[in-house]
Design a protein around this nucleic acid. Structure first.
Lengths: 157, 157
DNA sequence: CTAAGATAGTCTCATTTGCAACCATCTAAA
DNA sequence: TTTAGATGGTTGCAAATGAGACTATCTTAG
C-alpha cells in the first residue's frame, strides 16, 4: 500500500488549520467583545447584508445548526446587539437586524478581523493568495457550499 | 469602511470547508468502522509511524486536547485496536501501537479515505492541487503547525 | 374549507469537548 | 538526598453543540 501520510492528508490539514485560525481570531471577538463563534456568525451575517434576514437564513449560509443560531440570537437580543421584529408575511419567522449598538460593534470589529486575516495570509504572495482563494472557491462549489446572490445555498432550492 | 464579505473571509471559509469535508469523511470511519474523530486521529497517527509513540505525542501533532486523546485511547484499548505497554525509561508514559486488528482496520480504511480525498480535490487540476497544498504548507509553517521529521512541533522545543 | 405536510423557531436531552484538578513519576538544583 | 517544579496521563465537571421533539404558522391538494 502507498504509505499514508497524515500530515499530507488534506482533510486533516484543513481541520487543524481551521481550528488554529479560529483560535487566533477568537482573541478578537471573544476576549475583546465577549462573542462566541455562533454569535459572531450572526453578527457577521447581519452586518454583511443590508436588509434583515431570518434565523433560518443565517443557519443555512453559515452552516450552523438552527438550535445553535437560536441560542446565539437569544443572547444577542439580551445584549441588545440585534433587533427582532415580526415578519408580517410569515409570522413563524422573525426579521433580524443589527441594532445601532450592534452595528457599531460590527464596524469596530471588522477591521481587526481583516487585519488578522491579512496577517495569517501574509506568508503568501499576492498571486498565491489569489490562487488559494480560487482553489477554495472551486472546492466549495464542488461541495455545494456556495451561496447565490440571494443568499441561498446553490442546489438547495 | 471597505465592505466586508463574510463569504470571502478566509477564516470563515476554512471553518465551513473543514466541517464539510470532515462530515464527508466521517461516513467512512464513523458509519463503517465506528470510529469518532479523535479515535481516527489516534489510529492514523499510530499507523503513520512505524514505531510506538505516546499519547502526548499524538495530542501534540494532531492538536487535540490530551483528555480527548486519553478517552480515545481508552476506547481503542477496549476494542483491542491498539496496545499499550509501559515505557521503561519513563513510567509515567506509555508506548502505544496498533494491534494486528487495528493495523488491519488501518489498511482497510486508508484507501477509502484517500479515495474520498481524491474525490474532493478532483475539481482542481493537478497543478492547482499542488499549489493548494503548497499554500496550506506555507500557512501551516507560518502558524507553527508543522511537524519536524521526528514528529515534534517545530518551535515547541 | 379542510386536512396533510412543510417550515421557522424554541426547548430538552444526550453527547462531545475543553478545562483544570489530581496522581504518579521524572528532572534539576541546592 | 531532598525538594520544587515539570511532565504524562486520567478524571470530574461544566460549557458547547447537535439531534430531534414540539408549537405555531404557512402551503397545497382535494
Amino acid at each position: 500500500m502507498a504509505k499514508f501520510d497524515l500530515f499530507q492528508f488534506v482533510p486533516f490539514r484543513l481541520n487543524r488549520l481551521a481550528a488554529e485560525v479560529s483560535a487566533a481570531l477568537s482573541d478578537e471577538y471573544q476576549a475583546r467583545y465577549g462573542l462566541d463563534i455562533p454569535e459572531w456568525r450572526v453578527i457577521a451575517t447581519l452586518g454583511f447584508r443590508d436588509d434583515a434576514c431570518s434565523a433560518q437564513f443565517i443557519s443555512q449560509c453559515t452552516r450552523t445548526h438552527k438550535s445553535t443560531i437560536s441560542r446565539a440570537v437569544t443572547a444577542l437580543l439580551e445584549r441588545e446587539l440585534i433587533e427582532r421584529v415580526e415578519n408580517e408575511d410569515d409570522r413563524r419567522a422573525f426579521e433580524l437586524r443589527l441594532s445601532a449598538k450592534g452595528h457599531a460593534l460590527y464596524e469596530e470589529l471588522i477591521p481587526r478581523l481583516l487585519h488578522k486575516e491579512r496577517d495569517i495570509l501574509s506568508c503568501l504572495t499576492a498571486q498565491e493568495r489569489k490562487d488559494f482563494g480560487a482553489a477554495l472557491g472551486k472546492i466549495e462549489r464542488s461541495l455545494n457550499l456556495v451561496q447565490t446572490r440571494h443568499g441561498h445555498k446553490a442546489g438547495a432550492y
